[in-house]
Amino acid sequence: MSDKDLLQMFKVVAERVDKKSFADITRESVITDLGVDSLSMMQIVGEMETELDLQIPDEDLVEIVTVGDLCAKIENRMGA
């Protein structure tokens, strides 16, 4: 799965969870700046984990600040 695919997946899942448009996101986008609170963030993480059939370790979750951070954690698990 490419960078672009993960970014697109984040966008689709975030729009489904928060019921608003995330048209201009990049890997550098800070998740809280997008108006995504910690509740929505965990729901997005959970839905992406389910779709990709993997789990990010709980201890890593607090370090996720940008969309790219989340993508990187997922890429690490896909490569594990």
Binding site: S38, L39, M42, Q43, V45, G46, E47, E49, D58, L61
Partner: peptide, 18 residues
């Protein structure tokens, strides 16, 4: 803190508590 819930009522309730 140990596990982090990703969904369900417990996630909503935890958000309320914090």
């Amino acid at each position: 803190r140990n596990r982090t819930p990703r969904r369900g009522q417990i996630l909503q309730d935890l958000y309320f508590v914090t």
